[in-house]
Design a protein around this nucleic acid. Structure first.
Length: 476
DNA sequence: ATGTAC
């Protein structure tokens, strides 16, 4: 994008004053290089979102923003239910509650290296990955509804996980307000065999080493030291969330028209929060959040089991589990008044700063861990929420590196074999059922994650704590 | 992201 299209507020804040039907300004947080590399579609989409009813303060895009369905990926927008605010399935995304968890192993790189290959093979053998992958858990209708209501709590009650994890999961592992009866039979059928599976695309399980510490004090509070090994899992609500997204997007196009909402783009289909369909979507979406929370808890359990085999004296402790694709009701101060807003984060994480009441005691003084996945070769980052983030973007931050090339373009440039060999030469072991998927996820197809997190830090969204480099990646 | 289109 041409930087001249914006009012530049500071080095990492780019503002678009309302024009046309925009109700609020649009603000993109990024450095100049990231803005130049960003698709013009982000400008169009972030300003389109600013036209939706009930939006408050501004329509935001994070430094990793790119073109998405209707809303940009890396978009944050909050709506006030008492000012005709809307909820949008496209504002959450198809993979409802896709997210990341990082678990501490208590091990060092030196412990992993001698078994790196057999550990990679074990993880790959025992963790179902890939399109349409199914697992060992079969849900009957009663257990399906229990899972959709109970989330990670349901998983731990069934022995897949550890109850001590719960306080370090958003919503303490269980999203309230889920309504399984609002989830279609088809969505449930698709999920029947998919619990405890990784899925495909950019989903992964990685074994990572702490490569660099930026903030020793916070790293200490998070339990991270140089050369420590962690396990990070990135996945979501699988077929269930996708089916819910598909169905409600279609239904919301009709609903928006019926409510007299003028849509600048059909893909922004939405419904008033107070409408019947809006409430039904929220009930189904919250059920899908529980599905994703349960899924990550089960996958964490599998990782524990496999690590337990290699390292009987060590247990995996959850650092944090955070979603990237959600709509959450949160109190925020707007125009001097505390209001309950419906905050859509699509390809953006919650990033509560120190002192936030929803953080567990062990983390409250430091702030929320913000987990940012990079690509297979370039590593990931752990940040901490900053107090300034509240005013900047309703306490939100970027979620990853963000694609620089389309999947199609990546396929033309790389083969899966070459990507795997190049990374193996750097000591990074990739295991995946899909050679094509690996090519699509080639490190070169992603933006520079270091630049993205640097921009997020400069913009006051979150602060860097540690950089992680991959050792093993199980790719969907 | 996704039984990679119903």
């Amino acid at each position: 994008m041409d930087p001249a299209r914006f009012t530049r507020v500071d080095a990492t804040t780019w503002r678009i004053e309302p024009f046309g039907a925009m109700r609020v300004p649009a603000i993109i947080y990024a450095d100049e290089d990231l803005i130049r590399a960003m698709d013009d579609k982000v400008f169009e989409q972030v300003t389109n979102v600013a036209m939706l009813p009930g939006i408050v303060r501004a329509s935001y895009a994070m430094p990793d923003a790119h073109w998405g369905y209707g809303f940009p990926i890396g978009g944050v927008a909050a709506f006030d239910p008492d000012r005709s605010g809307i909820v949008s399935a496209g504002g959450v995304g198809f993979d409802v509650s896709c997210g990341v968890r990082t678990m501490l192993t208590g091990l060092d790189v030196a412990d992993i290296l001698p078994v790196q290959k057999s550990l990679a093979d074990s993880l790959y053998r025992q963790i179902p990955a890939g399109v349409g992958s199914t697992g060992a858990i079969v849900l009957d209708p009663v257990e399906m509804d229990a899972m959709l209501t109970g989330g990670a709590c349901w998983a731990t009650e069934h022995g897949w996980g550890d109850a001590r994890d719960l306080e370090r999961i958003e919503e303490q592992g269980r999203m309230a307000g889920a309504r399984p009866e609002c989830v279609s039979d088809r969505a449930k059928e698709r999920q029947r065999l998919e619990m405890g599976t990784l899925g495909s695309g950019n989903h992964y399980l990685e074994v990572q080493a702490v490569a660099e510490i930026f903030d020793t004090g916070v790293a200490e509070a998070f339990g991270l030291r140089q050369d420590n090994v962690v396990v990070t899992i990135h996945c979501g609500s699988r077929g269930l969330g996708h089916q819910i997204g598909t169905e409600f997007l279609k239904e919301m196009v009709v609903a928006a028209e019926a409510s007299g909402i003028a849509l600048p783009d059909r893909e922004l289909a939405c419904a008033p929060i107070h409408s019947e369909i809006g409430q039904r979507y929220l009930g189904a979406m919250r059920a899908a959040i529980n599905c994703a929370l349960a899924n990550r808890e089960i996958l964490g359990h599998y990782a524990r089991r496999i690590f337990g085999h290699f390292f009987p004296d060590h247990d995996l402790r959850l650092l944090f589990d955070v979603s990237h694709n959600t709509c959450k009701v949160e109190p925020h101060v707007v125009d001097g008044k505390r209001r309950n807003l419906f905050v859509h984060r699509k390809g953006a994480t919650r990033a509560f700063g120190p002192g936030h009441e929803s953080l567990p005691q062990a983390l409250r003084a430091v702030g929320q861990p913000v987990l940012i996945g990079g690509s297979m070769g370039t590593g990931s980052h752990i940040l901490v929420g900053a107090t300034t983030g509240e005013e900047k973007a309703f306490s939100s931050a970027c979620h990853g590196a963000g694609r620089a090339l389309s999947r199609h373009a990546a396929l033309k440039q790389w083969s899966g074999r070459k990507v795997i060999d190049d990374l193996a030469a750097q000591g990074i072991l990739i295991r995946s059922p899909s050679s094509r998927g690996v090519a699509e996820e080639a490190p070169g197809a992603y933006k520079d994650v270091d630049a993205v997190v640097m921009a997020a830090e400069h913009a006051g969204l979150a602060r860097r704590v540690a950089r992680l480099r991959p050792l093993i990646c199980i790719k969907g």
